[in-house]
Amino acid sequence: MKEENCVTKSISRSTYRVVTIVCGMLLLSGCVMAEKYEAEKARSLNFQRLLAQEEKRTGELDNEAKRGKKELMEFEARNRELTAQVQAIREQMARVQEEAEAMKESALLERKAKADMKRQVTPTRKAQPSESISDTVDLSASALGIAPEVPAVPEPTEPLMGSMRSPIIHVVKPGETLYRISRKYGLTVDKVRKLNKLPDDIIEVGQKLIVGQE
């Protein structure tokens, strides 16, 4: 009986120890799990906080992008308006230049018409004295029995071939002015006037003008 009691006591003690160890292990594992849970919970809260900050930052960036897009559209609209204004100013300047050229051409034509009228009036006034002088000269020459002298016409000297370049001649057509002719050949009005030794800008239809050299 004593041996059985000893065996039962030893079994109960070992069982108690095992149970105690198991309970301790369970308690330790529970503490570890609780710590892990708290750590994971803290990490989750931190992640949620970071996610909220990123969402806020993303919203701010979206607002900035919208503002930038709106400003860009305003700049483009302003640029289109300025481009239209510049184009209108250019067209207006072109019209003003055309009107100025037309006024200049009309003034030149008017001066030319006045000069033609003066040239037509002056020969008729001087025609009679010249005829009377020629009659007196003819009478005096015939009275003396001497033939009237005819002034000798100098023979034109032919230029050597290759020594000079032949000039480019332009025949003035109706409606043409010195300004148009100079622009046609890429010259200035002063250059054409100097080449032809013209006192002014008045030219006549059929007049031959030197406008360069070949």
Rank of each mutant, 00 (worst) to 15 (best):
S140E: 14
G30W: 03
I11A: 13
T136Q: 12
V22M: 12
D135L: 11
V189P: 03
P123C: 07
M1P: 11
E81D: 11
L109C: 09
N63P: 00
Q53R: 10
S140A: 14
A152R: 15
Y37L: 13
R111E: 07
R119L: 09
P156S: 09
I21N: 14
K104L: 06
E91M: 01
L26S: 02
G162F: 06
V171W: 06
Q53P: 03
R183N: 05
A102Y: 01
L209E: 01
S163K: 03
A107M: 05
V150Q: 13
P199Y: 00
C6V: 15
L144Q: 13
Q128Y: 13
E214I: 09
Q48C: 04
V96P: 00
P167Y: 08
E91K: 02
S142Q: 13
L198W: 03
G30L: 05
D190R: 03
R13M: 15
T177H: 06
V205Q: 05
E40T: 01
G212P: 08
E155Q: 14
A34S: 12
E155H: 07
M1L: 13
V153C: 11
S29T: 11
E131G: 04
R57A: 14
M73F: 07
P199N: 06
L50C: 04
P156V: 13
Q207T: 06
E204P: 02
A100P: 00
G30Y: 02
E99Y: 00
T15W: 13
N63G: 05
P148M: 13
S130V: 15
A100V: 04
M1K: 13
Q92W: 00
K36Q: 14
V96F: 04
L82N: 08
I21Y: 14
I202R: 10
I203G: 02
E38L: 12
F75K: 12
I133W: 12
Q53E: 11
Y16D: 15
M25C: 14
L27C: 07
E74G: 04
P154Q: 08
G59V: 06
L139N: 01
A152V: 15
E40K: 03
S12Q: 15
A65C: 04
L28M: 11
V150M: 11
E158I: 14
E74C: 03
E149D: 13
L26A: 04
K56Y: 11
I203P: 02
Y37Q: 12
S166R: 10
L139G: 00
I89F: 03
T136P: 00
T177E: 04
T157W: 07
M1T: 12
S29I: 09
E214T: 10
Q97Y: 00
S12I: 14
V19W: 14
R43N: 09
R193Q: 09
T20R: 15
K41P: 00
M161T: 08
D190H: 02
C6G: 09
Q92P: 00
G145E: 08
Q85C: 05
M25S: 11
E99T: 03
S134I: 10
S12K: 13
S132P: 00
L198T: 02
D190S: 04
K197E: 06
E105F: 01
E105K: 04
K118F: 08
L198K: 02
T58N: 10
M164G: 01
L50G: 06
R165M: 10
M103T: 03
L51V: 06
F47G: 08
T124I: 15
K41A: 04
L28V: 11
F47L: 08
S44T: 07
V205P: 03
V150E: 11
T177F: 07
R95E: 01
V137T: 12
N79F: 08
P159L: 12
L187G: 07
